[in-house]
Design a protein around this nucleic acid. Structure first.
Length: 442
RNA sequence: GGCCCUAUCGUCUAACGGUUAGGACAACGCUCUUUCAAGGCGUAAAUACGGGUUCAAUUCCCGUUGGGGUCACCA
């Protein structure tokens, strides 16, 4: 059987990270077996759905890099749903029921209810094995607000039937919806697809990951500077594993090895630290030109000239796991803040670990002399400048000399090494900062 | 609460009756480094509990406990 799978998001907001994983598994499974994967936006609740969210869903899909073979909007099938619904009523397996509206308004409505045979429904879940429900307690449940206005469960079953969906891979929260959907399916005389219920993605407190409480929208991670590949890679391994130690996978590799039998049954906590690790891996693997392009565009927000960038970019590359960390590096207290802001050394704050401020001032004075005498080209070469300073530092204790130097140049305890910093700042700026520090220390 | 699902290191997971219970992230330590990060090396860390079945249970069965989901004229 060539699989035909789907994901059915509702346009009530930005796409949930769990929806992305469900879509991914459906896509991988379909492609693994040469099938098709499509998206159907479930917009039968006119009250809650908005067109802008439909656009957002397509946008999120393109960004994630999960290809879709076909795209549907459920409300466009309304006529077909009405036709099918009417047929059920005509055949007497569903009926119109006149009753009071549930909204408390007291008005009368004519909902459509399914005549529930009250049997025990058992299905063979592709991930969990046999799952069984007694449907008696469901009663004659409502399948449409009116004969013209079918509800979710009906629309899903009708659409999956028409689209000839073979496998319904969806989140575990739908497991209890399955018996009533099977009942509708049987009333409609439709074949039963293979169901597979994926474990939920949980927050660290073990509750269902939520967009409101946990910022679990894909857009949120995109905005934080995570790459789509890293997210996809991480999500693929959340609730599934290849059975080998390999962790970094391209989409094509995933397609070639994805297997339903390796899907986990119990919920998995979403671990941002592991995501960060994946993202770092992907950033490190980025071709130089791609990294440079992205870095340059982000660096241009700060007062950094284009000519300085080639020196700064390698520094960033080895330090960031996500692009938003670049902004943190330039923020107050960040490791590269000194590049865009002159430090104001305060002797009280300086962590003079080994020496008194006056001694530190002496070292700085000496360094200023050395640096002042050095020809400008030396400031273009980290090794050269290191060779220039190290003999003096070794002689007087590295920490005694290099600590004050670092602090004079950056005003921070954390930064790249002082030699790199000297190159970054250039002769004039470096000397000026050292002189300011000497004054402050005296 | 009813119904349903579920249970291996803190987290993601491997094992598909016989392993010193493996890996990754995180943590910690050492190393490199003036600092931080990165890198290299290493340490600690788990089969929820109780019954069966079996020569042998992480693995199969039952129960307990824990966790989760779901109980709409939402999707």
């Amino acid at each position: 059987m060539i699989p035909r799978t789907r994901i059915a998001p509702s346009p009530t907001g930005r796409m949930h990270i769990g929806t992305v994983r469900t879509a991914l598994f459906n896509y991988l499974f379909a492609k693994r077996h040469g099938g098709t994967f499509f998206v159907r936006v479930e917009d039968t609740d006119k009250e809650r759905n908005k067109d802008e969210w439909v656009t957002a869903i397509w946008d999120d899909f393109s960004w994630c890099g999960i290809p879709t073979d076909e795209r549907f909007i459920q409300s466009q099938h309304l006529d077909r749903h009405r036709e099918l619904l009417k047929k059920l009523v005509d055949r007497g397996v569903a009926y119109i029921s006149k009753e009071e509206a549930k909204d408390g308004s007291g008005r009368k409505v004519e909902v459509v209810r399914l005549k529930n045979p009250g049997t025990r429904v058992t299905f063979d879940d592709a991930i969990r094995g046999e799952v069984s429900f007694d449907t008696k307690e469901l009663g004659d449940f409502v399948i449409a607000r009116s004969i013209d206005d079918p509800l979710y469960h009906f629309a899903v079953v009708a659409d999956d039937g028409d689209a000839q969906v073979t496998h319904v891979l969806r989140a575990e929260e739908h497991i209890s919806n399955t018996p009533r959907q099977i009942l509708i399916q049987e009333a409609l005389g439709l074949p039963r697809p293979i169901y597979g219920h994926l474990p939920l993605i949980l927050a660290p407190d073990r509750t269902k990951l939520s967009k409101r409480k946990h910022g679990a929208s894909i857009e949120n991670y995109r905005a934080q500077g995570y790459s789509a590949q890293a997210i996809i890679n991480y999500l693929a391994l959340l609730g599934w594993n290849p059975g080998t130690p390999q962790e970094i996978f391209s989409m094509d590799e995933l397609v070639s090895i994805f297997d339903l039998s390796q899907i986990q049954k119990s919920g998995a906590i979403f671990d941002v630290q592991k995501l960060n690790w994946f993202n770092r891996e992907y950033i490190q693997r980025l071709p130089a030109e791609e990294f440079n392009k992205e870095a340059t565009s982000r660096l241009s927000r700060y007062a950094i000239s284009v000519s300085e960038m080639p020196r700064i970019i390698p520094l960033i590359r080895e330090r960031i796991a996500t692009w938003s960390e670049l902004d943190q590096m330039f923020a107050e207290g960040g490791e590269l803040h000194f590049l865009i802001h002159d430090p104001a050394p305060n002797p009280v704050q300086i962590p003079w670990k080994k020496d008194a401020p006056s001694i530190a001032a002496q070292h700085l004075t000496h360094l200023a002399t050395i640096l002042n005498d050095a020809p400008v080209p030396v400031f273009a070469d980290t090794d050269a400048i290191k060779a220039l300073i190290m003999p003096y530092a070794e002689e007087n204790g590295r920490g005694n000399v290099l600590w004050p130097l670092r602090f004079a140049l950056t005003g921070q305890e954390r930064s790249p090494d002082p030699f790199t910093v000297l190159v970054l700042l250039g002769k004039a700026t470096a000397l000026a900062r050292i002189k300011t520090a000497i004054t402050a220390l005296q």
